[in-house]
Design a protein around this nucleic acid. Sequence first.
RNA 1: GCCCAUAUGGCUCAGGGGUAGAGCACUUCCUUGGUAAGGAAGAGGUCGUGAGUUCAAGUCUCACUAUGGGCUCCA
Length: 604
Amino acid sequence: MSENIIGYIDHQGNIIDTQSAGENCTATPIEYDNSEASLEIIRHSTAHLMAQAIAELYPNAQFFVGPVVDEGFYYDFRVDEQIGENDLKTIEKKMKELIKKKYKIEKYEMSKAEALEKFANDDLKQKVMERIADDTLSIYKQGDFEDLCRGPHVPALRFLHHFKLTRVAGAYLGGDETAEMLTRIYGVAFADKESLKAHLSMLEEAKKRDHRKIGAQMELFMFNEEAGAGLPFWMPKGAKLRYKLESILHKAHLMRGYEPVRGPEILKADLWRTSGHYACYGENMYLTSIDEQEYGIKPMNCLGHIQVFKQTQKSYRDLPIRYYEYGVVHRHEKSGVLHGLLRVREFTQDDAHIFCTQEQIATEVLQVVEFVDAVMKLFGFEYTMEIATKPQKAIGEDEVWELATQGLKDALESNQLPYTIDEGGGAFYGPKIDIKITDAIGRKWQCGTIQVDFQLPQRFEVEYVAEDNIRKRPVMIHRAILGSFERFIGILTEHYAGEFPFFLAPTQVIFVPIGESHSEYAHMLKKMLLKEGIDAEVYDKNDSLNKRIRTAEKQRVPYVVIIGEEEVANKTVAIRDRRNKEQYNLTQDEFMVKLITQLQEGTI
RNA sequence: GCCCAUAUGGCUCAGGGGUAGAGCACUUCCUUGGUAAGGAAGAGGUCGUGAGUUCAAGUCUCACUAUGGGCUCCA
């Protein structure tokens, strides 16, 4: 047996460790390297090694589960002492000491009954075994440390070198919010030093793109302790960026037959009772009272749109009617989940409601999918679609849910659009298609959503007059493309690392006049740009030329334009093109044409 | 909400039981410069908030608020 073999993989893709394989295994060997299978074994064993170290440092520790996850592993355990970030180093040190003892990792088996007996005093192990159906359980042993585990593991501790414990966290036992909270330590592990280093520096890079960091650097947005958590403020640069995004999308909506509407921020609680929000979503709503009447601050915009629809009589000839609103909504998110712009308590949705007949659902859903695709392409985003089905808290008949869910599936399938299913993830009033973007660090964020709803039209008695002069109930499609401006701009910021495309950049051009006498021409150019809707600034304060160029460059603007004797005399501009990392000269007219052309790229 | 950690001028951070430091930014003056930091002077903080321990708290303890990493949930 080769020194480097740490396991085998069979035809079904199952990993068999050397402890289980015996001498004459015919499955494909797994070498010690950074392959997926190899890393899975290494990480699992590293988790055990960590548990062994914790057991030595904290003799009262009890262990729950320690699985392999993306890039690493974790172990959940219960311990009397508080464990903080500083303790990670101590645990790592102990792990390295244990490796030096050159323990082999041995496996033996026993019946479940024997195992229950063996771990009789360990309620966490009892809980683990409750979840296992098998009659025979395996135990892995290294030195004095034993743990119930199905493997796979490396043959001996000497295979573990390149790991790092990354964070301490709390985790509910079994992910159940009402259950006890255990301590969880996360770590990463690789087969060689370089991969570990590369992974850690990748995390550093990701930190540099963090929208909270860039947002502060570029003065896009802020939060304020005195105002409250999860309530974003938009600074001038951020507001300019957001306005540009709103404008692009506004045109795109008009082109697709949407009409703008606007509803109030707060509505009487009875309306929320009728809709079902009060019962199904009440704990997330902010309630208040006016003249002894209960009101609710809107967490969604649907009710306003329904009222607008109902205000005038509608004919089948009017359908589909597509109302859209940049609707400000408030939702009480738990304090621990707030996260920069990605998770806030007040946000603005690019929300729309399409009122249509049942026959029109498929066409409308597809049109929305096309809209989503156009937006994602504009920003170069990868995305996936997921159909979410009926949740536990829901209103309406099962058959209606079936019908609506099937409608969504049909729409995607008839156009060969791939999707996955999120069982029980729907809104309380209907199933939905969620659009998930992958961000710079590989995290997935739900942004756009398309929801088919038979419930609210019924609850609010929404009607239109059909061809046969009979009043009928329209279907509502709720949809958002970006999801919210807050979240989407957060993701955009990380996606571009602050280097926004020309049509979005808060400041698109910075003019740097060399001397005082060149300022006038620079200001004249700035005015010309403003007329075309292009944001420009002139850096003519009392600093050296180099300093001003440096300051301008640090703003991450697409173009820094230098204006000197030559430019003033010839009516030209000297451009530093940050995106293409070039310098060149253009005439004033060529410059204008170039910028206006680039502005057009932001069209959907 | 729960677990762990953090909170020092606008920003990034150092310090640490005996009355606050640096760099950048800001203000003023000098410099008028052809592509990433010219020079000088100056102003700015009751060290997140509130209690407690102490002769003495920014430094130790507790609570709260906010932020960060997770659990759970979600646009």
